[in-house]
Design a protein around this nucleic acid. Structure first.
Lengths: 344, 344
DNA sequence: GTCTCCTACACAATCGATTTCGTGAATAAA
DNA sequence: TTTATTCACGAAATCGATTGTGTAGGAGAC
């Protein structure tokens, strides 16, 4: 049986109660010009007949949806899924719905998804860009149409727009400083693609911390990889030790790459943190699980989602206080065994 | 500037081309009764004016959406986020959109979300139930309205309905058998809430494997916890060793609980796998990261998502081949160091 | 030249909720 | 009793796309 039951409409209720549809509509939302008894009667019958307001009709008439579009590279990455969880929780509480799409780090997918979301007349859009993305026309089109757009984490370089993020520069500086405080002097960096704002910032923070401490920067200790993962972390670390470039500290701009580094260290008999102090970035669950525990910079993903949604709603609603053009959330230094040297 | 630009409609195009809106509508979808030149002219102008079909209006008229509702306990759990990734990828490819909501394992939230999704007239619903859920009225309501509902993973007991899952019973039996094959005779079980179908099945698989091998079941080695996590795994394992119930094998129905068990073993100087062989369930990323590597039963989360969506679309479209009432996906035994004893 | 048949459109109703503009009746004020 | 108000509700337009039905105009058949 595939035929859908016909839904109850306000016309059905109106007919049954012998009032006008407009009266039913108003009664259902406690409009002041409708009599108390009428309101009660309408609501009672609506309940009895299982009336559900038809969102499509309502949206069409009101010329707006209550749907928030979310465009991210991957849904199944820890940081992103936490971000989405935050967006969803906050949206649901505010009576909005969330429609998600993933670009899989492909520019082409991102453009197609952006257009699809735009066609469904979303109320606002929250975006974290694909790795490949360097042109932003598909986003600016949406902004120009008047739809609020909030950038999160993977932000664009040029577009002026609303952003919710962490201070990548300072956070990286803190991480690097922590290693320096532990006595490290030759600190390697596992960095991401420099054309991405966040990785560029993190690398700058690293460089600044070294300079501030009078440590000369050795470019050979720096990796900037477009595909930063466990494998790259492993290989670059091996490379450093093989080439007589052995560092005594390592800052990875992604936890998972730090895991690779630690795996190599274990296989090569390098002691962590004594010979190599390691700190990551994101404070993923793996940090707690790996041995020794991986120090990291905690990144409030869920909170970022909540804040992004709040900004989006403010932007969409002129009556609310206007949003800040940029929201920066606090990060934290989480020290575990991988970077904690005794005697310091 | 918060005013939205007015969107281009088929009326605008019709006026400009001096044809009827109906002609524009048909031309845009290559209707056979429209002249070739007219179609070309309409499409050209549509492109030039940046026309986007108004989904709200279209949906209202056609009495259906292209939105798939997804209702899960948590978005930010590895299994679920992979599931959603699969659903989204497949939906997007088929021209559908995905709207997600999380119950946070609360029955109340689940009911509210189900109603909200229903109100937005979703095309189909994919559900994984909240831990708390024992009444299914909010779901049956939706089924009865004619909306296709597909259950995934956390399925209900009673409702007849379409399901996409793995064979939890057999998978658990294979895991247990693997430990037996490694020489284990006292095998502990870290199980989940028995009122959940999947955990009930897994426990049955465990029991069956033991019986098939003539091993007596020791109820003291079995944990059935409503809140199975790392902490519970740690504590129950400690409890077993403290109480002189030391097992020589351990099957955890959730990887993260196995991690807790391994953490305890490490702290107590118990060798894995020599003294305690361990196997988990799900093959989460942590299995690769922990030392020694955690054996596990792999669980095709993304594939489940894809399959669930395919089933949903078939169910919604009478022209497509009807869906199977139950789809079972293959699981795999992934052997790592935690369960691999030499000499066997 | 008249009639039939297509081709290629136009017309108008429809989906269901919202909202503007009224209006009849009851009450209050004069 | 008459006029002004307020109250409670009705009528009808509207949002934009879709679709069943209707109809000019030209081609072809006889």
């Amino acid at each position: 049986m595939n035929k859908r039951k016909k839904q109850v409409t306000i016309y059905d209720l109106a007919t049954e109660l012998k009032v006008a549809p407009s009266t039913v509509s108003r009664a259902l939302k406690d409009h002041s010009s409708i009599g108390k008894e009428t309101i009660a009667a309408v609501k009672e019958l609506a309940r009895k007949r299982g009336y559900r307001t038809n969102t499509m009709a309502s949206n069409l008439r009101k010329q707006q949806t209550t749907t928030i579009g979310v465009l991210v590279p991957w849904i199944n990455h820890p940081f992103i899924s936490n971000l989405i969880a935050g967006i969803e929780a906050e949206a649901r509480a505010a009576g909005y719905e969330v429609i998600i799409s993933q670009s899989q780090d492909s520019y082409e997918n991102e453009v197609a998804n952006a257009r699809a979301l735009f066609s469904s007349r979303i109320h606002a859009l929250i975006v974290s860009l694909a790795m490949e993305t360097t042109h932003y026309d598909h986003i600016t089109e949406i902004i120009q149409s008047g739809t609020p757009v909030i950038f999160v984490d993977r932000i664009p370089w040029e577009i002026e727009g609303y952003r919710v993020m962490i201070d990548n520069f300072s956070t990286a500086r803190v991480a690097t400083q922590h290693l320096i405080d532990q006595g490290c002097r030759r600190i390697a960096l596992l960095g991401g693609a420099r054309n991405q704002v966040i990785y560029h910032e993190r690398e700058s923070g690293y460089r600044t911390a070294l300079q501030e401490n009078g440590i000369e920067i050795d470019e050979r200790l720096i990796l900037a990889s477009g595909q930063l993962g466990q494998e790259e972390g492993y290989r670059f670390t091996r490379h450093l030790f093989d080439e007589n470039l052995a560092p005594d500290g390592l800052f990875s701009t992604m936890d998972i790459a730090a895991v690779g580094a630690m795996k190599y260290a274990r296989s090569a008999g390098i002691c962590i943190p004594e010979q190599l102090a390691v700190i990551g970035f994101n404070d993923d669950p793996v940090c707690e699980i790996i041995e020794p525990g991986l120090s990291s910079m905690s990144h409030p993903a869920t909170e970022m989602g909540r804040k992004a949604l709040q900004q989006a709603l403010r932007l969409a609603n002129p009556k609310k206080p206007p949003p800040a053009s940029e929201v920066n959330l606090a990060t934290g230094l989480v020290i575990r065994a991988s970077s904690l040297r005794t005697g310091h």
